Each structure stands twice: as C-alpha cells, then as structure tokens.
Simulated assay, not measured.
Amino acid sequence: MSKAILKSEGIVSLNESKFITEGLRENLRVDGRRPHDMRRLNINFDSGVTGHVEVQLGGTRVLTSVRADIVEPFPERPTEGFFHFNVEFSPMADPNFEQGKQSDQFIELGRVVERGLRESRAIDSEALCIIASEKVWSVRCDIHILDHVGNLTDCASIATIAALMHFRRPSTTVTGSQVTVHPPGEKEPVPLSIHHFPVCITFGFFEENGVTVLDPHLKEELIMDGQMTLTLNSHREICSIQKAGGTAVSMETLSQCLRIAAVKVLSSTYSSVLLYQVEEITGIIQKALEEDAAKRRKLRS
C-alpha cells in the first residue's frame, strides 16, 4: 500500500501517477488527448418513451429517465410545480462503488446538476401549474450511473438536460376543479418549458506542473489536486460555479477560467476551445432530438 496513491474513488500506483503527470508536461494525456480536448459525445434516445436518454462521454455512460406526477403544491408557492433530481449507481459502474451507500461524491453530483438548472431558472416551474393551490406537476429526474471512466458531472448534466428536452408530459383539460389527463393517443403530450440549456464544463487542476485539463479521465481524477465545474449556456452566460478539492487556485487561473466561461474574446486558445465545446454539445443534443423526432414521425405514419 505504501507504493500506491490512495483516493476515495480508487488506487493509482506511483509509477502510473508519474506517467500521467510526465505526459501532461508534454501536453499529452493518458487517453491520447491534448489538455483542452473533450472526449467523444454520443446521445441515444429511447424512441418508445419520452424523457429516456443514454449519454456516453468517452467511456463514461449515464442513463437519465424523467417522469411526471400530479401533486399538491406548497401553500407558499401555489402556482409552482416541482423538480426532483436523484442519482443512482451500482458496483457494476465502478467496483469502488458501495451498494446502498451514497457517498459525498454522488450527493454533490446531484447538487451540481440541480443547481445549474434551478438557480439559472432554466426551467419554468410555473408552467407546471394545473390548478393554483390544488394541482401541479412534479417532475422527477433519475440519473443512473452505468459506467464511470471520469467526469461524471458533465456526462450527467448533458444526460439530464437532454432528457428534460426530450420529455413530454400528458396533456390535461381542466373543467372547474376536475382535471382530465389525456393519454398520448387522445391528445399530443406537452413539452416542458425550458428557457435555455445549461451545460457543465469541468476542469481538473494539477498543481505540481501547473496544468489544467478539460474533461478529466478517471485516472486523472484520482491524482489531480482539484477541479472546477462551470455551468454555462450557449448564450455565453455563467449559470453556476462549483470548486472542489483542497488545492489553491491562483487568481490568474481562476480569472482565466471565468473568462473562458464568459467566452470573452481572448488571445488565449482557451476561449475558442470552450466556446466550441459548449456550442458543439448543444448542437449534438439538438441534432439527436431532431433525429429522434423524425424517427417518431416515421413510426406514426
């Protein structure tokens, strides 16, 4: 055990740790990427049901499913519906996961995803109202970790916003205090009211050689000194910032990351890289949604 670096998520040998850090000095990463490259992103929707999507970011896979139920609102917010986010995992995703025990890592993961959506007011909760003070929609997002090969936050964030955009709740008719919920064959289901699409971009910090990497791999996560997740949208607006890890981040690095998130015009290559990533991710989501919509129309015809 003395010849290994032990982290809560797993173990990396000293030789492997040295190999990773030496490579970063040469701008090379353990999976062949450059420091600011993101892994390949794939999005697959279940054409049989809305709000069910599997996202793969490199080897990391996350499945998100969305459902809605009619409930009574809080008395102090009679016209607002609810959004709930839940992260679930199993040892099949990573042998270091413990069944039935939710670590701080996964509690924090759910909070980061929720914060990016809720605090930026990306989702209109008042559009979920059916009858004020009586009935509203409660939307639940279940985030299932299928494979953990690093950067669960970004993968879960993309899967969640894609699932919410794909989801359709049943159409309703209100007659007095009576609510009729129509099945899909009777009335077209209704999409959620989403104002913008927040995307998480995570950086990993290596204090020893002063390197910052985008979309950290699991092996990099096990030895990096800290990380920062910036949630922003295609309008170049910062939605939230989350800093984790005990390492100090210099003002220069912090300012640079903030400028990246705001996507201001910089001479540094960072800004163009991050802008590309955000627009690319949003574009991939939109393209996947359009392809799924076309597939559904073809099935109905």
Rank of each mutant, 00 (worst) to 15 (best):
Cys257Trp: 08
Leu266Arg: 15
Leu299Asn: 15
Thr172Phe: 03
Cys141His: 03
Ile20Cys: 06
His84Pro: 03
Thr247Leu: 04
Gln105Asn: 07
Val190Leu: 10
Ala132Asn: 07
Pro189Asn: 11
Asn233Ser: 14
Ile43Leu: 04
Ile260Ser: 08
Ala293Trp: 11
Ile20Tyr: 06
Val181Ile: 11
Glu208His: 13
Lys243Val: 01
Arg61Ile: 13
Ile284Thr: 14
Leu222Pro: 05
Ser255Asn: 10
Thr247Ser: 06
Pro184Met: 05
Ser125Lys: 14
Val174Glu: 12
Gly51Ser: 07
Leu230Ile: 13
Leu232Cys: 12
Tyr270Met: 11
Met92Gln: 13
Glu134Trp: 09
Asn151Phe: 01
Leu222Tyr: 09
Asn27Cys: 09
Asp147Cys: 10
Val55Phe: 09
Asp124Met: 14
Ala262Ile: 03
Phe89Arg: 05
Ile223Tyr: 10
Met38Arg: 00
Val53Gly: 05
Ile5Trp: 14
Ala4Ser: 11
Thr153Asn: 10
Asn86Val: 11
Glu290Phe: 09
Phe74Leu: 11
His144Lys: 10
Asn209His: 15
Cys239Met: 13
Leu299Thr: 11
Ser133Ile: 04
Glu126Asn: 13
Ser271His: 07
Glu22Lys: 12
Leu6Phe: 08
Ile131Gly: 04
Val213Phe: 08
Phe97Cys: 09
Val113His: 02
Thr212Asp: 02
Val139Asn: 06
Lys187Cys: 07
Val249Leu: 06
Tyr276Val: 03
Gly32Arg: 08
Glu188Ala: 13
Gln99Leu: 14
Arg115Gln: 02
Gln286Ser: 12
His196Val: 04
Ser240Tyr: 04
Ser234Leu: 05
Ala93Trp: 08
Thr282Lys: 11
Lys295Gln: 11
Lys101Phe: 12
Gly81His: 10
Asp292Pro: 06
Asp142Tyr: 09
Lys243Asp: 00
